[in-house]
Design a protein around this nucleic acid. Structure first.
Lengths: 327, 327
DNA sequence: GTGAAAGCGCTAACAA
DNA sequence: TTGTTAGCGCTTTCAC
């Protein structure tokens, strides 16, 4: 592999001039430029990023954590981030946490020692302090998880409010025995959702069971399994709030299998408004949120941080809204 | 940020010894080791990968192309690859092509100049020569796309056979007017599928229309759109082979909307056996393929290549099989 | 078991 | 406009 030194020698200029040409610096004579370009062509030279990275102490690379790469909500989210990063000239490297603290810890370990300019965290089981401590001086943005922190930029959805109003809707529709069906209460996000669910009951003077089901991945399969458990015995619920559309779709298919009529006997509300909602029968009602806007703001902030601009910690919250369909 | 020089000074040894400690080399005295470790702790030193990368000319990073990050088939595929890479000590950086040759070209551009040890291509619109030319001396594996090449390792599914036998199944079931509903015939994969479809007709002395629908992304939404187009008018098809389960799910929901009875009047077969198949009504029949095995073999080969082992180009093909459900 | 020294490929401050 | 020079942080021979 040819280096700039080879180019310099072949074209009869110095390394610096070659570097200038490569980086489109002004103040290079037309003559030098063409000579260098010719040499580059001839030796089919490609700049070695490793040298640049060491020299400039940047790598135009951003790390993103995601629970699992294949996730109906997080995949599009990270996909959007990746697309915008690329336009801004950054690559992204993706770290799957698999919902495990151990995995997550390993990731931060790698993150700091590695060649990343910034880190975006979309899902975490850790608190502010732990994260801050692990990622050190790196730029860290939180995307989607409503982490309580004053030291990190946070972009998140108003989970509490979204669940609150959806729950109220169900209750006002005459549903009384609602089941809150989501992840364990391990993250701020899950906590907020649960609070919204509880508060909606309180405000309407209804009581709610604290029953909540664990479902780490919120997959279709888990929905089916969970549904089989719920509907096989004597089911006294007339409404389910599901933590994701895939979970909801699984629950729905299981309900039908067990002869539970939806929406007559049972309402189901999903989360994220994934197109899968349109393919079930009846079509799934779901909560739609403003991911595009969130990502847009996030990227704006990220790029500013990368440019070294100084400004106070950003905290933005986006409202979701319930899309009512057949369930 | 502390460097090994700082550690060396603080612990009273040389840079070399610090390096040896960091890399767990033998032949370091217990005394030196502890002194260095203490210094590392004290200055909370973290090795700067950029220096290592330049020095060793590796980066423990692998590039993967994917059409879009959010894809019911490719996301899990890449997720599996990423997980296995991490275990082997590699990070992966993901490049979305968005089914565009221009995007793909840009990617290879970045790929060569950048700090990647190898590249895995899961979807490409380019031919062997173009790829080879662009990625130069990099290690390149093809995963999923049945590219015709003798110079790259290829791991792919037997698309032709899978579609062939599924089509025969439909025809033998008495369906006569099958619609082949997939991407444009731009990739070897699509070509193979179409061939399987055609051959199945030929072998049973049936004729098939060359009608095939474009559907770049194979999404639910596209399935619905396509379905609305097909079923709104006078539809004389009694069977559809869909290029993906999401497309199939969209088609199915549209068929129901237009009062087409499935499976009475119409059969639908999807591809990939995604869990969504279980949530539609009736449950979608689909073609299941051996992705796990494919990824396992791929990784094995990749790791060998990265270790510098020499062996002839690998070419592996995996059989799919039809899972019959309600459609 | 340890240290000195060279150098990976590149950029940029400075001098000319 | 151009070249000289230093050095980013690390690993690795080689000599002791």
């Amino acid at each position: 592999m040819a280096t700039i030194l080879d180019i310099a020698r072949l074209s009869g200029v110095s390394k610096s001039t070659v570097s200038r040409v490569i980086n489109n610096h002004p103040h290079v004579s037309e003559d030098s430029r063409t000579k260098v370009m010719e040499a580059i062509e001839k030796l089919s030279f490609v700049r070695n990023a490793r040298g640049v990275n060491l020299r400039t102490q940047t790598s135009k690379t951003i790390g993103v954590t995601i629970p699992v790469l294949d996730h109906p909500y997080f995949s599009p989210l990270v996909g959007m981030i990746a697309a915008k990063c690329r336009i801004a000239g950054y690559k992204i490297v993706i770290f799957q946490t698999f919902y495990s603290i151990d995995e997550e810890n390993k990731i931060y370990e790698k993150l700091t020692e590695n060649e990343l300019d910034a880190v975006i965290i979309t899902h975490t089981l850790l608190g502010e302090k732990k994260i801050k401590q692990r990622v050190r001086d790196k730029i860290v943005l939180i995307c989607n998880e409503p982490l309580q922190t004053r030291h990190l930029d946070v972009f998140s959805l108003d989970e509490r409010d979204a669940v609150y109003s959806s729950t109220q809707y169900l209750l006002k529709e005459g549903r009384n025995q609602l089941l809150f069906c989501a992840d364990e209460e391990k993250t701020p996000l899950q906590r907020q959702r649960w609070e919204g669910f509880k508060q909606a009951h309180l405000d309407l003077n209804k009581s709610c069971t604290i029953q909540q089901k664990l479902s780490g991945y919120s997959t279709i399969e888990e929905g089916i399994l969970l549904g089989d458990e719920i509907f096989s015995g004597h089911c006294n619920h007339d409404g389910i709030f599901a933590g994701s559309d895939f979970l909801a779709a699984g629950l729905l298919s299981s309900a039908k299998k067990h002869g539970v009529s939806v929406p007559k006997e049972l309402s189901i509300i999903g989360f994220d408004n994934h197109p899968i909602c349109l393919t079930t029968f009846p079509a799934l009602s779901s909560i739609q949120n403003q991911t595009e806007l969130m990502v847009k703001d996030l990227m704006h902030c990220l790029l500013d941080r990368l440019e070294g601009k100084k400004f106070p910690t950003v905290r933005k919250v986006y409202k979701g809204n319930l899309v009512i369909r057949g369930t």
